[in-house]
Nucleic acid binder design. Sequence first.
DNA 1: TTCTGCTCCTGAGGGC
DNA 2: TGCCCTCAGGAGCAGA
Length: 288
Amino acid sequence: MPELPEVETVRSGLANAIVGRTIRNTSIFHHRAINPKSEFDFAILEGQKVISVGRRGKFLWIRTQGSLNLVAHLGMSGQFLIQPKRKTDEVHLRARISFTKGTDELRFIDQRTFGWLAISGDGPEVPLMASHIARDLFDPEFNTKLVVESILLKKSEIKRVLLDQKVLSGIGNIYADESLWRARIHPQTAANSLTRRQLSNLLRQATAVMSEALAVGGTSFDELYVNVNGQSGYFDRTLAVYGREGEPCDRCGTPIIRISFANRSSHLCPKCQIWPAISAGGTIFENR
DNA sequence: TTCTGCTCCTGAGGGC
DNA sequence: TGCCCTCAGGAGCAGA
């Protein structure tokens, strides 16, 4: 599942492959590949020269000379691949962008169709369609103190807050679990019950774990994430809790457990990450 | 205004 | 072998 390190790996690969090239043609093969909020028709990209590839959190965009942005979200299974034109189409090919020169093309592939593309005009800092999300931890202007204060206003479980892209962007289920394990915080702890020191440490751990993942090309937990050249990342080999249910915790040896959380899974060490005496919402649980 | 739960979607895997 | 069910989860929306 692409989160910030994976999207940054894709952004970097795209920048190397398509900046400076002129778009010849665009083709869309599935209606769900286009976000209904797209401000323009895709044909408007034809003849536009790519000048940069940007990213905030899990959103990325291809900016053209005419101040247009092809904004993309990879969802759960979206992939951008640079492929030879002669290569057979992938089963889940959703869109194709060809260029005026070169023997390759850009393909958007998405098995589960949660990803999307859209054309958006420029906003003050980022394209309008990505302007509603908060800065991510890799943003040079990310302000830890401000984010800590905003988290302290939340009564929800800390994991839900970490996944809220309007609080801070880029963190998904895998890195939320890994960050909470490193910070020794139970995912169901009420956000406003944590101290400023704990929250600062949590953000530091989240930055560290995602930096380490980025250095090895991201996490390829299954075949749903590859970079633009079709290669997998290697961070799944060093995950501490995600996908390790029943295996011993690297710190204390206690078996990792998986709990159901907001329609998805949370992985944690029940010894290192103490069950909160009072969880979010005020329900009382016992330590276990 | 804030919080919570549901929905969208597809393919893999397990059970019968 | 084939059918059915469950699971995976990002983001937006509706309802409380």
